[in-house]
Design a protein around this nucleic acid. Structure first.
Lengths: 152, 152
DNA sequence: TTGATTTCCGGGCGAAGCATTCGGATATTC
DNA sequence: GAATATCCGAATGCTTCGCCCGGAAATCAA
């Protein structure tokens, strides 16, 4: 159980855009080189973010990407769902073990576990915005600069 | 982000053993056929559960598997960790994007998100035992039998 | 003692998914 | 019209997943 690079890069990329809000739009390749990520891949991710309505794009020369909404109103869940299509995927829905066992009103004791997981995960990711991460970023940055090792 | 069949089958299998505690040991193939799972695969899963100390095995004719501890003392987390090697895997540790970014004391704002996820997930899975699932199972069974559709 | 049963265990294998690249079409600016 | 970008599907190589196979060792019953 882990997130793929879609989710991880998606966060890195949208965080980069959040950092450059209010400026000129940032081309995909600039994001990629600044963050040290594969260029063509970043382009695909930005495409997904745009289709989800999280970023807006401007085509042609001087074009690029911008966050569609203020960073405080974009949750980590938004980004992950846009980039990876889902946060936690419950097997009962997507990869059922068998039709009978996984039928919605069978007496399966395991399903509630996955449901609970899904709810907790979504709630947590819903509660964190790109704005929060941006704030944390500069806070940690400051700690590091005065020589205090950040935890974890 | 989802659990693999190792985790899911692992739960099904240990739940099956929990249901038959106190009886003669259950051979792997009996578990498999009773639960409708691939036999050789179940064998491998039971092997992992045994290596993790969750089940005990008896070799030879009349042999089979038994839960090593009472079902109330075996958490869902125990089972998943045994079957899948981890619950939620944090990329910073296992699949770092880059050495610098993911270095423990870099100012990465994303890492705390994964850490928080990991903690919440582990806490939730720690709080559920096979005994709980067994109880829920019979409760739901009863609801179904009197014609009330279980939720979710 | 022999045969049946069963765990033990590594390796293999096809299919799917992941991470990434490619090629080219379309739009915009200078 | 050249340069810069987004747009988009498809192709690629790699890893992991889900599962099977073959055989060795242990145990029990006849």
């Amino acid at each position: 159980m882990r997130v793929t690079t879609w989710a991880e890069y998606g966060l890195i990329v949208s965080l980069h855009l959040a950092r450059h809000q209010g400026e000129v739009p940032v081309p995909a390749r600039d994001v990629a080189s600044a963050e040290g990520l594969p260029g063509d891949y970043v382009e695909q991710i930005l495409l997904k973010l745009r289709r989800a309505g999280l970023v807006t794009s401007i085509r042609g020369a001087k074009g690029g990407y911008r966050l569609a909404r203020p960073a405080e109103t974009v949750s980590v869940r938004d980004v992950i769902e846009a980039a990876e299509n889902h946060t936690f995927e419950v097997n009962c829905d997507a990869h059922p073990v068998s039709a009978e066992r996984c039928h919605p009103n069978s007496a399966c004791a395991i399903r509630p576990v996955w449901r609970a997981l899904q709810q907790q995960i979504d709630a947590l990711l819903d509660g964190i915005s790109l704005g929060d991460l941006l704030a944390e970023e500069s806070a940690v940055e400051e700690l590091v600069s005065i020589g205090v090792a950040p935890r974890s």
